[in-house]
Write a protein that binds this DNA or RNA. Structure first.
Lengths: 198, 198
DNA sequence: GAGTTTCGCTACGGGAGCGTATCGCAAGAT
DNA sequence: ATCTTGCGATACGCTCCCGTAGCGAAACTC
């Protein structure tokens, strides 16, 4: 994997690499779409020559892909004590994420550019969406098995209801009027009225 | 309102105007974002000189605003026979809309460019979002008054759950795998399990 | 110290789109 | 017939960005 023969010249600057990725994320976080993102702007923001960028990435998508990959927020640990508790933790992470600029920006990319940058989207889906989706699914399946939830609950639909409701809020929330702290709990409690076995 | 003094020269071609708006909608529908949309491309697509566009609209946002305004889909008529029926009609319109290209494109604008084009977004919100939002709210309030729904139902949250769940589906639906016909009914029935008075 | 590679910087030719101006023709009012 | 305005077309100078090349300095290995 690593160097088998000694590297001969000046090594590539790790600092420059991080500056480039950081600059790209900053720009995207400020609302620049992937298509609008220019290498020149990234280089200027990073305090780096364009050459340094082209030497590492052959196209914009690869750069953005690597940049987004560094953001993969850790999956929240779900204690598994109760479905309600796990769901609240899960949704509250979404709520908190919606307040940070960078997460908003990757949401924008994920939401609005799937068909425009399919490879980028696919990569993002596998590294970020799919694991979370599985975690949520597991919580609901577990609840169904334990009897906390209805036997005939449509898990796919339930996932869409939970995520969709929080997503709806995060999309329409303004910066001035952030989402209330107990939003996750209120969503989960309302949803569980229907999900629960009775 | 109209001409008080006679119009002196050659009148503006209504045909050209429609061609311009149509071209703009086509391009946006094909995935061009508002920022990427170029006047030159619109003019070329419409078979029109750039001058003809600049004579009517001073900036891109006004043009796109007028274009989107022509799309305002009619609010679905809600019969008012039952909450369940009204909600299904309401959500099913969302589902059907998600299959037409132009509706998808205005959704993209509404979802991803609110901060980038605030005036455009505001206009869209008032002409499209707000009326629908009011209609949905009215259905739920009516249901609460009639006893079909819980007295203590959080109407705002219920609206987010219904719309958010359908929106979630429309966002992740692929063209190959369209949303099932009974999706609206399934969402409503699942939600009503919690919303209903018991 | 010699050799090699990367560094930030500047400059290049080229393409795309901007918004404006000007053309000769078209379409109406007077 | 004359006047006025809109029409499509073309061209202009401008800005932004592309991707590449060359510069001298810097950072390593040998």
């Amino acid at each position: 994997m690593t160097r088998q023969a000694a590297v001969r010249g000046r090594p590539r600057s790790e600092k420059a690499e991080k500056a480039i990725i950081g600059a790209a994320l900053d720009l995207i976080g400020e609302g620049t779409s992937v298509s609008e993102l220019s290498i020149e702007a990234v280089a200027a923001r990073a305090g780096v020559g364009k050459t340094t960028i082209y030497r590492r990435w052959t196209n914009k998508e690869d750069l953005v892909g690597d940049a987004l990959a560094t953001l993969k927020a850790p999956l929240p640990a779900l204690a598994g004590r109760s479905v309600r508790e796990d769901l609240i933790v899960y949704l509250d992470v979404m709520r908190q994420d919606s307040r940070t600029l960078r997460t908003r920006c990757i949401m924008n990319i994920a939401m609005s550019e799937p068909e425009r940058h399919p490879r980028l989207y696919e990569r993002f889906r596998q590294s970020v969406i799919e694991p979370r989706r599985c975690a949520l699914q597991a919580v609901l399946e577990r609840g169904r098995a334990s009897g906390e939830l209805r036997e005939d609950l449509d898990v796919e639909l339930a996932m869409a209801m939970l995520s969709g409701t929080m997503m709806w809020h995060t999309k329409w929330a303004s910066d001035l009027d952030p989402l209330p702290d107990d939003l996750a709990a209120r969503i989960v409690d309302e949803a569980l009225l229907g999900f629960r076995a009775r």
